[in-house]
Design a protein around this nucleic acid. Sequence first.
DNA 1: AAAGCGTGGTT
DNA 2: TAACCAAGCTT
Length: 304
Amino acid sequence: MTVTHETQTPEAVDPASLHTPVIAWFDQHARDLPWRRPEAGAWGVMVSEFMLQQTPVNRVLAVYEQWLARWPRPADLAKEAPGEAVRAWGRLGYPRRALRLHGAAQAITERHGGEVPTEHAQLLALPGIGEYTAAAVASFAYGQRHAVLDTNVRRVFARAATGIQYPPNATTAAERKLARMLLPEDERTAARWAAASMELGALVCTARNEDCSRCPIAEQCAWRLAGKPAHVGPARRGQTYAGTDRQVRGKLLAVLREAVTPVPQSALDAVWHEPMQRGRALDGLVADGLVEPLENGHYRLPLT
DNA sequence: AAAGCGTGGTT
DNA sequence: TAACCAAGCTT
């Protein structure tokens, strides 16, 4: 049987021997991020998780602060027009996240009395919340015991436990099983471990230019002990962007974000020369609920 | 289940 | 410079 990078058996690792050094390292080196402060609350944690989906911390910080100042509770956002959420989202990218966060705020207001739900299943049922975000909110905001598998943690586990440079493109059952095996039994320790292992991946065990000299578990790292073998397997999915519908959508929505009043078709036509692709992109934005077409041929961010 | 979905900094 | 990378979700 061929052993691929996806089915490779993890080295025998003693979970407990990882928890203590990683958590101790976290105590020393954790960044002071606003959503980690007590006053952030579950809503702050949830907002940060939406914004951090595929978007770097540095770009999120300013928008996060403005967002929480303007909408300090889910109900505050829920009563706004969805277009205001899209506008406030600014240039974070993937603006459908803004729409979903707005929808999640409405659901929280209607179904959960305005409080971010504590149960993983209830979180998972909210728009824009998947496996990772549900676990992250439950763990970071409520101190619960969940395997929190984001790209950072997956990379740390791939290296430290499995001995490979990069995890598979999509999260596998084997990764989930490993994450559950490594999760501390004690709830408080598990929540600490989730944040600590993620931070380790973000600051030290990075995708490129990892710094093993600063790693608290370098001596136990299967990948390092194996001589840091180079990644084998399918290349990571490339994200071509230039000339795609995504780029056109971005340009169209940028015009609408800046506009205070509805925008004429001509203003949108100016952002892209090719009419077919331009029309397809605009139709897509309307279908997604990111843009509202008016009777008079003008467009705006959605009021409802 | 593979593809689509933004944006900008780094290498 | 083109490719890679960044706390994923949805269909």
